[in-house]
Design a protein around this nucleic acid. Structure first.
Lengths: 216, 216
DNA sequence: GACGAACCGTAACGTACGGTACGGTTGCGG
DNA sequence: CCGCAACCGTACCGTACGTTACGGTTCGTC
């Protein structure tokens, strides 16, 4: 009766509630979360927890996957592609990304995943990485390549261009937050930083400004 | 007889040996490190550990500080300041930084610090942050400002310019490594990435390329 | 209305580990 | 040589928590 691994969507509403409780507890307590605490707050028995999720690691894994399944951001349409719309798309991505990585939920999950990255069987790190940084790359690269096809961007390797964009957007935000720095990202700051990162990226890889080889 | 807090330098050779053992165990075991394991490998008694460091947290704190005290990188002289020497300095910083954050020791310490960032009295996160990201900024900012004074760089806020440089250098490397991504940074790759980041930074903030307002 | 599956609440078990206590040894000052 | 301080090795204690077991309740099905 263990919850299925691959799809991760065969979750009862009750099970989803339990995972939401685990998620909230993870935000509050961090890795100090205990099975007893989850059972109590979710008003379910520990026996049920173990039947559904196997063990503590299984619960954590299911929780991480559950959260990942909730943040499917809408992909951006690449219909019209002029410079203003490309700029808009990039700023959207940047804002979205900054909002995610500065959210309490993301910080908590990343902390747990990092903690378990040392010795892990089901390694949460890979899951978080897959649904965070890597998924972001998969979504943005088509946009970048469309921009290049439209003659708006210039780069050789889309992966490399994405990593530059990633660095310009995230800078030191994620590591500082993970290490406990009280960094307050207001929506105004996010908007400003996203615009700056986009402007800088276009300065490096925009086809109109610079022939081709600025970034590499 | 607890080890002094402020200077952190009043360490017996024997104590330094113990902390080196703790460091190695932290790399191997991560946060699963136990006091018994440290005592065994260091061939000392647990009683001594507790007398010297108070408790487990004290040992971890002392270990982090001990490592921090070992990585005092030489500051770069700002005597001659033409574009080639500035470029060289920036590349040096970038290479150094990439080497540090991709080292097993740094990864292990950052993981432990991130783990304890949730609920921590002596918070390791602040210590790691202080000796990592923040120390890097303090060292590089004078170089940037000297470059601006010499008419080689253009920026309004040195902190902001540094964060841009930080993002261009680190990109997604640190978070990927912390999450367990098997990312191999050869010295060749480090050299290439450092040169690219420096080139990009100069494209954004170099005074010769761009009037003033590219990055903001 | 009886049966069984699923589940809740609680109690119980086992263990790992942080922390302490203690006897034995070494080495140094007087 | 005596005494003492520091320290090693080991045994011990207490507890927290993962995991299991069990009695009681609900609810859908025949």
């Amino acid at each position: 009766m263990q919850v299925a691994e691959a799809p991760g969507e065969e979750l009862t509403a009750r099970q989803q509630d339990v995972l939401d409780v685990a998620l909230r507890l993870l935000v509050e307590e961090g890795d100090a979360l205990t099975m007893t605490a989850v059972a109590q707050r979710a008003s379910c028995s520990k026996e049920t927890l173990y039947k559904w999720f196997g063990d503590r690691d299984g619960l954590l894994t299911a929780t991480v996957k559950w959260q990942a399944s909730k943040v499917r951001v809408a992909a951006i349409d690449r219909a019209k592609l002029d410079l203003p719309s490309l700029t808009e798309s990039l700023e959207q991505y940047a804002s979205n990304w900054l909002e995610v990585i500065s959210s309490e939920t993301s910080i908590a999950l990343n902390r747990v995943a990092v903690s378990h990255a040392s010795s892990d069987k089901k390694n949460l790190g890979a899951i978080v990485l897959e649904n965070g940084r890597l998924e972001m790359g998969r979504r943005l690269k088509p946009v970048l390549e469309a921009g290049r096809d439209a003659g708006l961007l210039a780069f050789d390797d889309a992966e490399d261009a994405f990593r530059t964009f990633f660095g310009l957007v995230a800078r030191d935000v994620q590591i500082r937050l993970l290490l406990g720095d009280r960094l307050k990202l207001t929506s105004a700051a996010i908007a400003r930083d996203s615009a700056q990162a986009t402007r800088q990226f276009l300065a490096l890889h925009g086809a109109q400004n610079r022939p081709a080889s600025a970034g590499h």
